[in-house]
């Protein structure tokens, strides 16, 4: 049970799900699966299929957009509570970056097909995600105006 609350809070703090009510996030929380990656592994490579998103519950990863997936030139590092590959589960575009595991990393993964299934069953999830996306768009627009 305690795990459920932690997962709900973790999801709520992600930009993608910030507009979804915590009560609806319980449904998503149940669909999350744990996965562990070890230092030196790559979670995914650029141009891979974006079939799931990863929420980091511990550890650290580096994001590289170098065409050579083996090169460790990171544009950004992500740590606990952050998310990678979230756009991939909404669109059908391939991965736009490679993610290297910098420290042993525990993740919670959400598969695209599972999310789609949940959205079909619970349209409130889609509305919440749309609300989050609209807020992101509004922020981006405000930043551009500045």
């Amino acid at each position: 049970m305690s795990e459920l609350f932690e997962r709900v809070l973790l999801l709520k703090q992600l930009p993608l799900f910030s507009g979804v009510d915590t009560e609806d996030l319980r449904i998503v929380a149940h669909a999350l699966q744990e996965e562990i990656f070890f230092k030196g592994e790559r979670i995914f490579d650029m141009h891979d299929n974006g079939d799931r998103m990863f929420i980091l519950t511990s550890g650290k990863v580096g994001v590289s957009i170098h065409p050579d997936p083996a090169r460790q030139e990171f544009i950004v590092e992500r740590g606990t509570g952050e998310c990678i590959g979230e756009m991939g589960i909404l669109d059908d575009q391939p991965r736009s970056a490679t993610v290297h595991v910098l420290e042993d990393t525990h993740t919670l993964t959400l598969e695209k097909t599972r999310l789609q299934e949940l959205i079909i069953r619970y349209p409130a999830l889609a509305l919440g995600i749309l609300r989050s996306m609209s807020e992101k768009l509004r922020d981006a627009s405000a930043r551009i105006n500045r």
């Binding site: 609350f5 932690e6 709900v8 809070l9 709520k12 009510d21 915590t22 009560e23």
Partner: peptide, 12 residues
């Protein structure tokens, strides 16, 4: 974290 969740639920 636990309190944060209760706070969020109260707000909702």
């Amino acid at each position: 974290a636990a309190l944060e969740l209760v706070g969020l639920i109260l707000q909702e």
